[in-house]
Design a protein around this nucleic acid. Structure first.
Lengths: 338, 338
DNA sequence: CTGTTAGCGCGTTCAT
DNA sequence: ATGAACGCGCTAACAG
């Protein structure tokens, strides 16, 4: 590896001068600058970020910790984050927690050891609190994505979950549905809680009694075993005419289960959910969804994070909270009941 | 930041002993080991990867350079790569080239400066050659994904593009289609070339003359302006009854264009393509596709890369080439012509 | 079993 | 405008 010393020697200057040329700091005569530049090219010099980071005490690395890059929502979040990170000169590491607190813990350790300058986290849920406290204790700035964690103030980018759930339920009732079920994520996840709340409020406003049997609280993550969903479906009587899913994964799994049981969607059961399902929706729009602005989650979150990193010394900057609107896209997965 | 010196002082040993405890190297008495461990916990010590990397001359970072994480194919590649990287103790950086040679060049510089231990690249095409040569010159091991680059030997993971194209065309002919068009990526991309070849061979075997007007070679990337596709569609006469798309993006764009022009798919025009479209296909399968094993591209590619990194000194290890099978999934986007 | 020395590549500080 | 000395946090090599 060629270092600044190599090029210093060959250019007949000191390493410090080379460093100055590279970073455009201090005053340097055009002559030496050009000379140094020429030698750098000649020797194919590439700066060493690790050495630089070590002395500067900053890595220019951000970490994106999401539950699963494979979920189209997070895919797009990642794209937004990478674009913004690149724009500000940061590199982006990422990891998938799979909604597992333990895996999340592992990544937190990695993040600390990496000396990432900041973190974007979609926390697995309220149980992430200790992890966030660890980050805080080590003074690593972070921005929460999609989920808040009680007991931890921070910058955060959220979707309007409550409003989204209301819109979904209202849409269903306006199509004549009254028996509306909800399959949701864990109540330990703030966005799931808000979606349940929105669902309950909308029912009330539509004079529909709340029935606990119509609600299943389970994991937002894909599962191999659908039996929990199956038995829930069987348990409800009378069966619902419509199901609200707390996210896209649950929608897919409910529909698969319904299909396996011979139900047709939407003819026999309507289904709506949060989060879109990627490019397919452009050509064969099926699911009626709350299409959250995933790209903005990542892009704006990264902006906030970078701001926070750079104004780090300014103590007491108030925490910022961005709530992105919940826009509904009506498609074909809801039938009308007369 | 607490360093090994802090904990050395507090534990009454030398920094070297602490280092030994951390890395489990050398022989250390249980007593000192425990003492050191206790102090480490007490002080919330976290190792500094950057310092470690600097002296060890290895970063434990891999870089995944793809065209667009938003493309469900690459999304899944990324998931496979991250899983494998994590398994081997590597962290994973990623970047999107958007099929742009310039952006790719930028990332190559980043990769070098980062001192990434290895790179997974889906090169933008044959013009990536200089970039790969740069990596090679700097002795950075890399594995090519999905695309080969003439003039550069290396490890590579490919799909069986030729066979895939044949299958697609054969399927169409078996449904009675004879006027089969192809919308493909740039001929500067090896997989696009092979798909064209497979298409031509299959036509020949089916006694269908090749017609250059039925082929459009354009970018694999999403575009805002569909006019190129529109005019191609208008140009073909008689119009094709079926279209093979070189990837999922092109399939989506062709279908959108067809819809905009009032054509129905598959009633008036059938469409098939390479690469699946994400989770949607599970619930509302529409497009007939060659579903490449995206996860394996990432997972196996990373395995190969790690092997190459670790056996780095063993010169002359032959380049490995993995060709993953092209499995067709028949769905609803092809109509039968009597 | 444990400590000392030196250096990984770079930038800050203080001279000149 | 340029250079020398030092340290960022860690480990390899050697010494004891």
């Amino acid at each position: 590896m060629v270092t600044i010393y190599d090029i210093a020697a060959k250019a007949g200057v000191s390493a410090m001068t080379v460093s100055r040329v590279i970073n455009n700091t201090g005053k340097i005569s055009d002559k030496t600058r050009n000379k140094v530049r020429r030698v750098m090219e000649e020797l194919n010099y590439v700066p060493n970020h690790m050495a630089r980071s070590l002395v500067l005490q900053q890595s220019n690395v951000l970490f994106l910790l999401i539950t699963d890059i494979t979920n189209p929502f997070y895919t797009t979040v990642a794209r937004g984050a990478e674009d913004a990170a690149r724009k500000h000169g940061y590199r982006l590491l990422f990891g998938n927690s799979d909604e597992s607190v333990e895996k999340e813990k592992d990544y937190i350790d990695t993040i600390l050891a990496t000396r990432a300058d900041g973190v974007l986290v979609a926390p697995t849920g309220d149980l992430s609190l200790p992890h966030l406290e660890t980050l805080r204790r080590h003074r690593v700035p972070f921005v929460l994505l999609d989920r808040e964690v009680p007991g931890m103030d921070s910058d955060v980018v959220l979707g309007d979950s409550k409003e989204g759930a209301r819109k979904l339920v209202d849409h269903l009732t306006s199509c004549g549905h009254r028996r509306i079920a909800l399959i949701n994520g864990s109540p330990l996840i703030s966005s799931a809680r808000l979606r349940l709340e929105g669902y309950r409020e909308a029912l009330k406003l539509n004079d529909i009694p709340f029935d606990q049997n119509y609600v299943l609280e389970t994991a937002f993550e894909p599962r191999s075993d659908l039996s929990e969903i199956e038995s829930w479906l069987d348990r409800m009587s009378p069966p619902p005419t419509a199901i609200v899913a707390g996210n896209n994964v649950l929608a897919v799994e409910v529909i698969r289960t319904l299909h396996a049981r011979g139900f047709r969607v939407p003819e026999q059961v309507s289904v709506v959910c949060f989060d879109d399902l990627g490019p397919y929706s452009e050509i064969d729009p099926f699911l009626t969804v709350i299409a959250q602005q995933a790209y903005q989650f990542g892009y704006l979150g990264t902006q906030m994070l970078v701001d926070r990193i750079q104004e780090r010394d300014v103590t007491g900057l108030p925490w910022k909270k961005i709530v992105l609107p919940a826009d509904m896209i009506v498609r074909r997965s809801v039938s009308t009941i007369k």
